[in-house]
Each structure stands twice: as C-alpha cells, then as structure tokens.
C-alpha cells in the first residue's frame, strides 16, 4: 500500500486520535494538571478565596517546606508511616507468598480459599473498620479471649500499638490482591526446576527457597512497590480506627496531616508541600526497595 503524506503525518487511522481525546483530556485534567498545580502551590503563599477574586499569591521559595519540616506533627506522621511500612511490607510479602504457594498446590477447596482471601479486598474499608473497632475495643472479643494477656491500654488507644495494629489491619485487608499476583507469577515458574531440585535431593523447604523465591522475584518487586504506595496513601484507617491518628498523634499518617493542614485549617500550600515531600519519600523508598528486592543473583 502506498502511504501518502497525510497518512505518514497522522497515522493510518487519524480517527483514533479523536477516540482517545476524552481519555487524554481526563488524564490531563485529573492527573497531570493537578500534579503541576500542587508543586506550584507548594512554592507560593496560596490560600482559599471566593471564586473569581483576584489576589496576589507571592512566590515564597521553600518557606512552606521549612514550615512543614519544622512541624513536629508532620515529622511524627512521616516516622509513623515508616513504622507502618516496616511492619506491613515484609508481613505482606511473607504471608501472600506463603499462602499462594500453599494454594497453588492444594487441590481441595481451592476456589473457596481464593474467594475467602479476596473478600476483604473488595469490601469498603469503612465497613470493615466498624468490625475491627468492635473486635479490638478495650472490652472487645480479642481482649476477652486474651484475658490477662490483653494489652493495657488496649490496641487502638495504646500509643505503641496503634500504628502496628493499623499495619496488621491493612495487611489483612489487601492480602488477597497480592496472593492473586503471586498465584499468577507461580504459574510461570518452570516445573522442570522443581524436578531438578528434587533430583538433587532438595526437600520441600529447600526447593521453596531455591526455586520458588527466585522464580517469583519480579512479582515480589511489584508486591513491595504496590504495598509501599498503598501504605503511603494511608488515610481512612487512622481517621476512623484511631479517631484521627490518636492517641496523641501516634498513628497519624502524612495524608491525614495533609488533610488537616491543607483543608481543615485552610492552608493548601502547606498541604501541597506535605504531598510533594511524601511523593519524594515514596520514590526514595521505592528505589531502595528495588535495589534490594529486584537485584539479580
């Protein structure tokens, strides 16, 4: 087929550009522009005004960042999210890899297991938070089973246990999704490798360590990154489970502080600066994780 100059310039089906236009406009309006706008606000003295009012919003350099970084509540929130990640990410990887490996070889009740692990993932956090509050209440079921072993103050009102409890909750809530990722990855691990391992006399545990773990490494990288991004976005759980990041800020997350400073207290410039710092933090952590998890042996 001969290609005319128009075809060369616009492609064979220029109508395709029309078809994707609504989607591209959507991406630009809802992702690209707000992203740039957030960076802009973080470097200016930006405040809410009546619609249409023309006011000066002077450039203030790093002032907002200085304010943010010298705010103890913000520093606390970033430290809290690190505690969250240190518990949540390894727990997620170990449990989802373990359960998916067991599930991969189990024949009985396979669908039942898969479905039951996935149910929390499709349910609204607001709904399951209700039952966790009931379970982990001072005189809830968990403490009444533990009896004298129950922590005092109880889980969610204990400044040492509030964040770890939230980390466990989120692990439980998201685990089904990660189990599915690992199940898909396990299908790609060659059966020959397991046979070779058992010929060499490797037991089940040895072949898990030497065949399964390296075989699903790309999936592990993905699981670690997704779990990290999910953790950095933490908001609903500290807002509802611990009554707004309590006790005394012990379970506040950066997004929660961003909401309080940016919207409740009406300082969107400060809120944006927290958001930008959070993105940078996540990127740094993701790069470190990639180095450790993604390395080739």
């Amino acid at each position: 087929m001969r290609r005319g100059p128009v075809t060369r310039a616009l492609g064979e089906h220029p109508i395709g550009a029309v078809f994707v236009t609504p989607y591209v406009v959507f991406l630009a309006a809802v992702f690209a522009y707000p992203l740039g706008f957030a960076v802009y606000m973080s470097f200016h003295d930006y405040f809410f005004t009546a619609p249409g009012a023309i006011v000066e919003r002077p450039f203030v350099g790093f002032d907002n960042y200085v304010t943010v970084l010298s705010d103890p509540a913000v520093r606390r929130a970033f430290a809290n999210v690190l505690v969250f990640l240190v518990i949540n990410v390894p727990l997620t990887v170990v449990l989802s890899l373990g359960l998916s490996t067991a599930l991969n070889s189990a024949i009985r009740w396979r669908t039942f297991f898969r479905v039951s692990y996935y149910v929390p993932y499709v349910t609204a956090s607001v709904a399951v938070v209700g039952v966790w509050l009931f379970l982990f209440n001072s005189n809830g079921l968990v403490n009444s089973i533990l009896g004298p072993l129950a922590p005092d103050p109880s889980w969610l009102v204990n400044s040492k246990l509030a964040m770890p409890t939230i980390a466990v909750y989120v692990t439980w809530k998201q685990l089904g999704f990660f189990i599915l990722l690992y199940l898909a990855a396990l299908q790609n691990v060659s059966k020959d490798l397991y046979e070779a391992a058992s010929m060499d006399g490797a037991g089940r545990w040895k072949s898990f360590l030497n065949v399964t773990v390296p075989g699903v490494r790309p999936a592990t990288t993905l699981v670690v990154l997704v779990a990290t991004v999910t953790g950095a976005n933490l908001f609903t759980e500290p807002y509802l489970l611990t009554g707004g990041g309590g006790p005394d800020g012990a379970s506040a997350s950066p997004v929660l502080i961003m909401y309080q400073r940016g919207i409740e207290q009406g300082n969107p410039d400060i809120g944006s600066a927290i958001g930008v710092l959070l993105v940078i933090g996540v990127l740094i952590i993701a790069l470190i994780e990639r180095r450790f998890v993604g390395r080739e042996d």
């Binding site: 616009l10 109508i15 991406l27 992702f31 992203l35 976005n233 940016g262």
Partner: peptide, 28 residues
C-alpha cells in the same frame, strides 16, 4: 487504530497507575 501519539497515550496510561491519588487530593 494506528494514529500519531498512540504510544504516548499508552505510556501515559501505565504511568497514571503509579500516581497515588491521595497526593492529588489537595490540588483537586
């Protein structure tokens, strides 16, 4: 459909998946 910019739109779509929505909360 073959059209100019298709690869760009596709890459943009994948990139969007890693932008955490919560961080866009304030500007939105």
């Amino acid at each position: 459909l073959q059209f100019r910019g298709r690869g760009l739109v596709f890459n943009l779509m994948l990139l969007i998946q890693v932008v955490p929505f919560q961080l866009l909360t304030i500007p939105l």
